[in-house]
């Protein structure tokens, strides 16, 4: 335990209580005070910006409220509508199924490509740090900027289609990456993966670096070939990083829809092919078009809560698995 007097938390306590008061406390009390002081800012911020809104969400899902004027208490009617009314139920099922596909494409590409890039970057090759910087560049960009940037590339007049039609002559007509219902969701998933790939690379790379050399040498001395070494020594070390990436990405893609909302609108065009839970939630709160009549923050809160309850077990299972491994 570092001396309390020299820690920032200690300074706060001293300022609040004074050195005289502190002297009367025993070591355990001081340690507890330090813990509280260290935890307080985080708990306060989390409470104000996450926990209280989360509690408000529980209340909000019991009302019918268009975002303005008085709220009307409807009990569990929003949930009854969501699961009982075919109009909402069909949207829920479709949005969830498409969200699952969206997630699978993203997580598969992030884990596979992220591992490949991380392994490549772990070698002592020339310019390794430059490559790292290049890979990391997209990550700090805002989602909106990435959405517009990538849309410029894949649009029918964009460089990718010009390359395919006039450069390589692979196709006669430009490919509607965002217009073809069979391609649009995968294209958006590619945007997401490109944007967040460095996040996966960094986590996997730090795990790769943590693989101890003597274990690799021991495996080789025991006669293991390259694949067996990767499988028996490297991948088990990477597993916690894989799980962490999976959980964070899962929570993110089931609750956000920035690319979809910006590029495809709240209706998840084309023909709802890119509709995911985030767009369904947004549309329920704010409407999709001038003729949207059922704008209801309560329904959106219900959708948010259902999403949280559906992904929570998976996220908890993976997180607990990670903790067990660490033990």
């Amino acid at each position: 335990m570092p001396p309390l007097l020299f820690s920032p938390a200690g300074a706060i306590i001293l300022a609040a209580g004074g050195a005289k008061g502190m002297a009367k406390l025993n070591y355990k009390q001081k340690a507890n005070l330090q813990r509280i002081a260290l935890l307080a800012p985080g708990v306060l911020l989390y409470g104000v910006f996450n926990f209280i809104p989360l509690l408000a969400l529980l209340v909000l899902c019991l009302v019918d409220w268009p975002g303005i004027g008085p709220m009307k208490f409807v009990g569990f009617d929003n949930f009854a509508q969501l699961f009982g009314n075919p109009y909402f139920r069909d949207q829920l099922v479709k949005a969830f199924a498409q969200n699952l596909i969206f997630f699978v494409i993203i997580i598969a590409s992030m884990l596979i490509l992220g591992t490949i890039f991380a392994l490549l970057l772990s070698f002592r090759t020339w310019g390794r740090n430059t490559y790292r910087s290049i890979f990391f560049l997209p990550y700090p960009l805002a989602g909106a900027a990435v959405a517009f940037l990538l849309e410029l590339i894949v649009r029918t007049r964009g460089p990718l289609n010009v390359l395919l039609t006039k450069g390589l002559h692979v196709v006669d007509q430009p490919i509607g990456f965002l217009g073809d219902p069979n391609l649009a969701l995968a294209t958006l998933a590619t945007f997401y993966s490109w944007h967040r790939m460095s996040f996966a690379i960094i986590l996997i790379l730090s795990a790769v670096v943590a693989v101890r050399m003597h274990l690799l040498e021991a495996a080789m001395l025991d006669g293991a070939n390259r694949w067996q070494t990767l499988k028996a020594v490297v991948f088990p070390v990477l597993a916690p990083a894989f799980i962490l990436i999976t959980v964070i990405v899962m929570v993110d893609v089931f609750n956000n829809a920035d690319y979809t909302l910006i590029l495809m609108g709240p209706e998840g065009a084309p023909a709802r092919a890119t509709d995911i839970m985030g767009t369904f939630l947004f549309r329920s709160a704010f409407g999709g078009s001038a003729t949207s009549v059922n704008v209801n923050f309560g329904m959106s809160a219900a959708i948010g809560l259902v999403t949280a309850l559906v992904i929570l077990p998976a996220a908890l299972f993976l997180a607990l698995r990670n903790m067990r491994r660490e033990k």
């Binding site: 910006f49 996450n50 209280i52 809104p53 989360l54 408000a56 969400l57 909000l60 409220w65 975002g67 929570v251 993110d252 609750n255 956000n256 829809a257 985030g278 939630l281 947004f282 709160a285 923050f297 959106s300 809160a301 959708i303 948010g304 809560l305 999403t307 949280a308």
Partner: peptide, 13 residues
């Protein structure tokens, strides 16, 4: 939970 949290924060704020 960000979109739904935003929703509730909006309601509170």
């Amino acid at each position: 939970m960000r979109l739904s949290t935003m929703l509730a924060t909006t309601a509170l704020c």
